[in-house]
Design a protein around this nucleic acid. Structure first.
Length: 760
DNA sequence: GGGTCCTACATTTTT
DNA sequence: TGTAGGACCC
């Protein structure tokens, strides 16, 4: 086919560029994927060998799609397309020895890493540690992505906690080495080291991968930058594509300056800007544009489209998250009933996976098929992880983490005490746990029964290990059979047993599929593939179901109809991102990404009250709503209550549609809605001084209104009688304590309910 | 050692 | 709301 005829001049410029660095700044929906794949086809057309091309994408799914498209344009060409992590894993299998690790290394995922950090912290500081394992874990990850060594982190440490973190980092590294394991970030870090310390290897890889393409370049971190740089010295035929406005992985170490400084890093590079949007309606694009303009740390850019105006963007306010979910479900049902869309045309995005639950429920009861992307991934389920740990231990006998996980699963009478003795003995001798288990009779303090147990277990694993070069599917079947795992599951899981057995079946068929695709593979290849898989890789757009996912997962996708829910302060922007402008701008970009996924219709919503962590809480509208072109939008408030008065978080904001200054509420009731009631009214005592009954309504968990501070929630009460005090956390972030009998606090209750809203 | 119950706890996003 | 870890009892 003609690779150029249907392209715009800009797209054509990018596609026809062959040698030298190329930066493609591609706005949302500007046909970027098409440009990249065409360019690869064009490279192949011009006689460049497929093995000289390396294409890096953000997810395996994107890689698969690109591979397919390239295959369609240039059949039979075997271009390597994959993620940074996949590429590095492969490279590391060949060059492991250069950084002192074994080629059969195991890849630890985040849960494994957290487990390892916990072990290390306990060993280092016992119960004394003042830093949480989670914080240490993320600090280690951050350090690695920034190419900071344990020594450097130690030198940098300013206080005791940072010192302990650095120490834990060093100990963690040792532990991984002893287990012959690497974590996600190590895949990158080790490759950086290989490239840095071995000029010959670097030169040969640079020569091999003469044409490098990196997609989503705005989300690369320092380690990834270093890899790309090292592969583009002798042959700087590097093409990167991305959009600074869509950078949403800063928390993972992504460095926006990689793309902003590209022209500086690669002098003489060609820059192509793709600004025309082919995806969305004018209305949707206008919303995206107005929003993203509020980012100050940004190169101004216009978003243009020749697409029709389209329907106005819709913003709906509901009373509670269940109402919101039902409204979404009802709207979806209506759209499909009208015949214009299928379920698979629709996606619902939210900030956190935890927010999907009410949506799921509503979709279920409306009998709308859906699939959820993310959340607890299939491979993180306990039963799956157990079996995978057996495989891991078979493939890598030094994997102490896997050993500890399964040595007593199913129960073999090897509890904590026995394991502690074994660990100590192994540590003294510098042996892996499996090796120590084989000679458990030499470990101090073990009872005969435990010695026998460990040796039996070691024998079992050794026997299984003999099967290591068999197909993964068969290995899994053998593990299940020889460990009696299915029986153990049946005995130990009450009503979930069926589900869990089904998960094991699914694991077997996953292994089978892998086997078909990679006939030559070994168990550790299967494990690596699983570990490096992302939730979105399992997503199938063909199933005829509504898609439910986080805004992060939505990157790179598009849907005719998009819903974005829970546009509330604390959720979007997330409360953890509230501290500085940088994080706040990333949150804004996140919403921008969500909005620009929509092709024809966009529905935004928020709920006035949200139950989170089992607690009802009044919410405030996301500040981002005020940044949208509200006059062009269609808005309806179906909550049946109006906003209370509250001090705007910043600026004056008054007069805007989302912040109604008038509203200390004339109680208004609507079926199933809310009204605001005073404690006095509740108890029927009609507005006099608070009676004991009034005070009874003011309990922890109850949402209240204060005329000055706005909505809040009672977090604690203290004392009794007239001097009883209550602490209220207000939605503005401040917390205050009042004498309940005196304070003008009013509980928010459900119409027709029997009493104040209660927690739990 | 192992199972059960309870409490305390945290809680973003993901390769 | 969920879960991970601790206390307790068999």
């Amino acid at each position: 086919m003609d690779l150029l005829s249907d392209l715009t001049p800009e797209q054509r410029a990018a596609v026809t560029h062959i040698d030298g660095p190329l930066l493609v700044l591609a706005g949302a929906g500007s046909g970027k994927t098409r440009v990249i794949t065409r360019r690869v086809a064009r490279l192949l057309d011009s006689g460049i060998a497929p093995e000289n091309i390396l294409a890096i994408t953000f997810t395996n799914k994107a890689a698969g799609e690109m591979r397919e498209r390239i295959e369609a344009l240039a059949p039979g060409s075997r271009v390597w397309v994959g993620t940074f992590h996949g590429f590095c894993a492969r490279l590391l299998r060949s060059y492991a020895r250069l950084v002192g690790i074994e080629p059969g290394f195991t890849i630890y995922d985040q849960a494994d890493r957290l487990r390892a950090v916990k072990d290390v912290l306990e060993q280092l500081a016992g119960d004394e540690a003042r830093v949480t394992p989670e914080r240490v874990e993320s600090a280690i990850s951050r350090a690695k992505n920034d190419l900071v060594t344990p020594q450097a982190l130690r030198r940098r440490a300013r206080d005791e906690d940072e010192g302990l973190t650095a120490k834990a980092y060093a100990a963690y590294e040792e532990k991984l080495r002893a287990c012959s394991a690497v974590d996600f970030d190590d895949l990158l870090v080790h490759v950086v080291r290989i490239l840095k310390e071995n000029p010959d290897v670097r030169a040969s890889l640079d020569g091999r991968y003469r044409y490098v393409l990196v997609d989503e370049y705005q989300d690369t971190n320092l380690a990834q930058y270093a890899i790309v740089r090292a592969l583009s010295v002798d042959h700087p035929n590097l093409c990167v594509t991305g959009d600074p406005d869509q950078s949403i992985y800063g928390w993972r170490g992504a460095n926006l300056s990689n793309i902003l400084e590209f022209e500086h890093d690669y002098p003489g590079c060609r820059v192509v800007k793709l600004e025309r949007n082919y995806r969305s309606t004018k209305n949707i694009l206008s919303a995206a544009d107005q929003l993203i303009r509020h980012n100050r740390d940004r190169k101004p850019k216009s978003l243009l489209t020749e697409n029709p105006q389209g329907a106005p963007v819709n913003l709906t306010i509901l009373a509670r998250e269940t109402d919101e979910a039902e409204a979404v479900a009802a709207k979806i049902a209506g759209l499909v009933r009208e015949g214009e869309y299928n379920y698979s045309d629709v996606a619902v995005f939210c900030r956190m996976t935890a927010l999907t639950r009410p949506i799921e429920q509503a979709l279920r009861s409306a009998r709308i098929p859906y699939q959820i992307v993310g959340g607890v991934s299939f491979y993180e389920r306990q039963e799956v992880k157990d079996i995978l740990s057996y495989l891991g231990l078979m493939a890598n006998p030094k994997d102490d983490l896997a050993f500890a996980r399964v040595v007593n699963v199913p129960a073999r009478g090897l509890g904590k005490t026995s394991l502690d003795h074994l660990v100590k003995a192994a540590r003294d001798r510098g042996l892996p746990l499996l090796a120590m288990a084989r000679q458990a009779d030499q470990a101090e303090g073990l009872k005969d029964k435990a010695v026998r147990g460990f040796r039996d277990f070691a024998r079992l694993v050794d026997e299984l290990r003999a099967l290591c070069d068999h197909p993964a599917e068969e290995v899994i079947r053998q593990v299940l059979e020889r460990t009696n795992y299915p029986d153990y599951l049946k005995a130990n899981s009450d009503d979930k047993g069926e589900d869990r057995l089904a998960n094991l079946d699914e694991l077997v068929s996953a292994a089978h599929e892998f086997e078909l695709e990679h006939p030559e593979s070994q168990v550790h290849d299967f494990l690596a593939d699983i570990t490096l898989a992302s939730p979105i890789d399992r997503w199938d757009e063909q199933t005829g179901a509504v898609t439910l996912m986080t805004l992060h997962a939505a990157k790179g996708l598009e849907f005719p109809v998009v819903f974005i829910v829970a546009l509330e302060e604390g959720l979007l922007p997330h409360s953890r991102a509230n501290n500085n402008d940088k994080e706040l701008e990333e949150e804004r970009r996140l919403l921008f990404v969500g909005i620009t996924r929509a092709r024809r219709e966009l529905y935004l919503s928020r709920s006035r009250i949200r139950t989170f962590r089992g607690q009802q809480q009044a919410t405030f509208p996301s500040r981002f709503l005020d940044e949208l072109p509200l006059d062009e939008m269609e808005m309806n408030d179906r909550s049946g209550i109006s906003d209370p008065q509250y001090p705007p978080p910043r600026g004056n904001g008054s007069g805007s549609w989302t912040r109604r200054p008038d509203a200390y509420p004339a109680p208004r009731s609507s079926p199933g809605g809310f009204r605001l009631t005073t404690a006095a009214q509740l108890s029927g005592s009609g507005g006099g001084p608070a009676s004991p009954a009034d005070l009874d309504a003011l309990r922890p968990g109850v949402t209240v209104i204060h005329p000055e501070f706005g909505m809040g929630r009672i977090t604690a009460v203290d004392g009794a009688g007239p001097r009883r005090k209550g602490t209220v956390a207000f939605a503005t972030g401040q917390s205050r304590t009042f004498v309940l009998a005196m304070a003008p606090l009013k509980p928010l209750v459900r119409t027709g309910g029997t009493g104040p809203a209660r927690s739990g």
